[in-house]
Write a protein that binds this DNA or RNA. Structure first.
Length: 802
RNA sequence: GCCCCUGUGGCGGAAUGGUAGACGCGCUCGACUCAAAAUCGAGUUCCUAACCGGAGUGUCCGUUCGAGUCGGACCAGGGGCACCA
């Protein structure tokens, strides 16, 4: 078999079976070797593997295999983020049970992944929809519940009146439900929340320790948490109404306190409610506010509107000074205190509002004291400067003035310096069937009671109907009827299920350790964690990564684990893209439906000219996907893996191209020819030896730095150098090392070449080659002769002592 | 509006402040072949027929003996957040 072409179809399967028989990639938790945990974000079992998965898992696989060759014990697991809406949609559309649909998808995708030859420990595989997993998740939920990190609260949700379900913000399109098309209502519902805000500061501070994360992701999380420092204080209401005597506000600019000309409260603020109770006009205004949409586009264009109440407050620094209270459409109930004081001169929204209602616009900040009497122009000035027209603050810088106001407020007792976060608590209730049941029982007399541990897991009922909209669990005839674990009285099971982001908030711990009687074994989990290298799409930069960080910190606080951060290294890879094509009628065409005709694209079936569109992320809606399966069948796993790593830097998008995969396939054959025809010979090739040592160093460095495209380029260079060299002992040795260097990226090819070179063990068990630092420099150096930075000449000289 | 990132040949992209364009794709020419595929060899930033030479990393300015790389301003493209007080 040392001649002819490399046959990937035969070789891939042969080695995949041998790795499995040898349990080559099963991680041993009790090993004495240094441990490395490599993880890619686990997939949702949609039914088929797509190119994005292939790219993601190939990168992780290169690192896993490279670390193994370096002598590490590597944990590289795979599983399924298996709960979620698509399974319920499939159930409604095709009358199959969500579980049946999901497990069938998992079977299909597992086979597809195995076809690519990833070095995965399949013995640790699990799906989140398995009671063995979600039962342990329920146990952890109850631990958080017992620790006071879970609570129940009324909150406003997007309610689809046709499907009778809550919709996520992403599922509301132009104010209508994405499925039903019905106008979405805002409704108050009792929901379960996790106290992520308790950890706001820890999560923010923790970002500083994550030096192996992309700056971009850390910044996005920082903005999401949104810490702002300021003053919280109360205005005394001069003419109290219904027992409400003051209004609490928050500001990040206490230095502008003398510039305020009104107070505004949110439509659902208690003061607004109290006013509305006595005033039908106010009630009508509040109803109007609530009818307004919440989409970004609507907010952009919405006018600042307010309703002037008869209430007035006294200014805390001048009891004679009265400010009107408005109910305003731009004030949010769930940020700060739900009330603001308006400073039109130095805040754009307040400026617009004041202009509309003819309220005073006063300058209290200026670039210099002598500019104190300059009027405010057509826009608010939010720049920092010095305080003016502000009595005792005049002349102080913005920062000094703010500190002074906070000091006086605290001394006099009408306010205090405080910190606000943009981050909200995490609402985890979903009115869905296909999710982890929330292990709570509602009792008329005892309230919400935890399901006793010995009754876990709370398993989803199998006999379930999807013929009507709404939550099928709630409609189930018997499932929810239980007795109270506390008093034994009649009670009702919680029929909401957990947000699927809960499932993915701790799966990496379960991969590291999965005992049957508890969520994880602490010692075993800590042997692997934190994940050394986590790889996934940047679209999870905020939600998933923030939730997983929160969950880990919560477990740390409960004393269940010692680590604070789950992912030591994070890498966000780019998308796989492809050109898009549109027919004359504007419909999208798939790449298989078009063909090239000179410089034009033509629809194969109709012969019609096709307009090529932008290069975009592969998606079903644009029909620009390329299915990995036929590509794998044609070119083999290694060519696909090779192409996924070459050309584009991994953090950038990779454009799929037929010529790219052809090139990768050519290289696979080149290496095979080189290795299979190489034979032992006499003599030393000094130049080639230096190239070899340099390549060993460079490929290793590139993989460590996750610069796979550079590692690939180095391998091309080494291959060319070996091909050109005359037979020698060095050349034969170089061929052998080339195979070792290529093994993480093209493992099947490497095994086949390794055997052809006469090796009797698997390359999966081989060690990464060493290099001699002394061999990294040439004996001859080329010196550039520059005059004024321009190259004028080059000359060669033997390397001597410095 | 606020915050951030990226601009290098026909294309994807390389370049510790020191020979810009490694490597791949594409293209051109050649070898092998009756022919093709496959493979191999040579070339490929632009201007110049070629040599010599000159220009060149989005634009302008600066720091430096020397700038793709450092600093400033601008232009273009992309991303994140957003009535966040």
């Amino acid at each position: 078999m040392s001649n002819g072409r490399f046959d990937p179809n035969a070789a891939d399967r042969r080695w995949q079976e041998r790795w499995e028989q040898a349990r080559s990639f099963c991680a041993d938790s009790s090993s004495n070797k240094p441990k490395t945990y490599v993880l890619e974000m686990f997939p949702y079992p949609s039914g088929r593997i797509h190119m994005g998965h292939v790219r993601n898992y190939t990168m992780g696989d290169v690192i896993a295999r490279y670390r193994r060759m370096q002598g590490h014990e590597v944990l590289h697991p795979m599983g399924w983020d298996a709960f979620g809406m698509p399974a319920e949609n499939a159930a409604m559309e095709r009358k199959v049970h969500p579980g049946e649909w999901t497990w069938a998808n998992i079977r299909a995708m597992r086979e597809q992944l195995k076809r690519i030859g990833f070095a995965i420990d399949w013995e640790r595989e699990f799906a989140t929809c398995d009671p063995a997993y979600y039962g342990q998740e329920q146990a952890l939920f109850l631990d958080l519940f017992a620790a006071g990190l879970v609570y129940r609260k009324e909150s406003e949700v997007n309610w689809d009146p046709v499907d009778m379900t809550v919709l996520a913000n992403e599922q509301v399109i132009d104010g209508k439900g994405w499925r039903s098309g019905a106008t979405v209502e805002r409704r108050k519902l009792s929901q379960w929340f996790l106290k992520i805000t308790d950890f706001a500061d820890d999560l923010l501070e923790g970002l500083k320790t994550l030096d192996q994360w992309p700056d971009k992701v850390r910044l996005m999380q920082e903005n999401w948490i949104g810490k702002s420092q300021g003053l919280q204080f109360s205005f005394r209401i001069a003419n109290p109404l219904g027992g409400i005597e003051s209004v609490e506000v928050f500001t990040t600019r206490p230095d502008t306190i003398f510039g305020s000309s009104f107070v505004a409260v949110a439509a659902d603020h208690p003061i607004a409610q109290a006013v509305a109770a006595a005033d039908p006009d106010a009630a009508a205004f509040i109803a109007e506010c609530k009818a307004g949409g919440t989409s970004a586009a609507e907010l952009e264009t919405a006018e600042k509107k307010g309703f002037r109440t008869s209430l007035e407050v006294a200014h805390p620094l001048d009891p004679e000074w009265r400010l009107p209270i408005y109910i305003a459409n731009f004030v949010l109930m769930d940020y700060g205190t739900g009330a603001i004081f308006g400073v039109p001169g130095h805040d754009q929204r307040d400026f617009e509002f004041a202009t509309q209602y003819h309220l005073p616009i006063k300058r209290v900040v200026a670039a210099a004291p002598e500019l104190a009497s300059e009027p405010i122009g057509t826009e608010a000035e939010n720049a920092h400067g010095v305080a003016v027209n502000s009595e005792f603050l005049d002349g102080l810088t913005t920062a000094e003035a703010a500190a002074e106001v906070i000091r006086r407020a605290e001394t006099a007792g009408w306010g205090h310096g405080t910190v606000q976060y943009r981050l909200r608590d995490w609402g985890v209730s979903r009115q869905r069937y296909w999710g982890t049941p929330i292990p709570i029982i509602h009792c008329q007399s005892c309230g919400p009671v935890a399901v006793p541990r010995e009754q876990l897991p709370v398993v989803l009922p199998e006999d379930i109907e999807f013929d009507k909209p709404g939550n099928p669990l709630d409609r189930h005839p018997s499932w929810k009827h239980v007795s109270c674990p506390s008093c034994g009285g009649e009670a009702r099971r919680e029929t909401d299920t957990l947000d699927t982001f809960v499932d993915s908030s701790w799966y990496f711990i379960r991969f590291a350790s999965q005992p049957s009687d508890k969520p994880f074994d602490r010692a075993e989990a800590e042997a692997w964690l934190p994940v050394a290298q986590y790889i996934g799409g940047v679209e999870h930069a905020i939600l998933h990564l923030l939730y997983a960080r929160f969950w880990t910190r919560a477990l740390q606080r409960l004393g269940q684990i010692s680590i604070a951060e789950p992912f030591k290294g994070l890498f966000t890879q780019g998308m796989v893209t492809h050109e898009t094509y549109r027919a004359g009628d504007g419909s999208w065409l798939s790449p298989t439906e078009v063909t090239r005709d000179g410089d034009d694209w033509v629809h194969v079936e109709s012969g019609e000219r096709v307009t090529p569109g932008r290069v975009e992320k592969m998606s079903k809606s644009k029909r620009n996907t390329v299915d990995p399966e036929p590509i794998l069948a044609r070119y083999g796993a290694d060519a696909v893996r090779w192409f996924m790593l070459s050309d584009s830097p991994p953090e950038r998008d990779l454009e799929w191209s037929e010529s790219g995969i052809e090139g990768a396939s050519r290289f696979v054959q080149r290496v095979w020819r080189l290795a299979s025809t190489s034979s032992a010979a006499e003599g030393k090739d000094e130049a080639l030896e230096r190239k070899l040592h340099r390549a060993v160093a460079a490929v290793g460095e590139a993989i460590e730095g996750l610069q796979f495209n550079k590692a690939i380029a180095q391998l091309y260079e080494l291959t060319s150098a070996i091909e050109k060299a005359k037979p020698s002992a060095t050349r034969h040795e170089a061929a052998r090392k080339l195979v070792l260097l290529a093994a993480p990226a093209a493992p099947h090819l490497a095994e086949e070449c390794w055997a052809a070179l006469g090796e009797t063990t698997m390359i999966a068990e081989a060690a990464w080659p060493d290099f001699d630092p002394a061999m990294l420099v040439d004996e001859q150096v080329t010196l550039a002769v520059q005059v004024n930075g321009k190259l004028r000449d080059t000359l060669n000289a033997p390397r001597g002592l410095d």
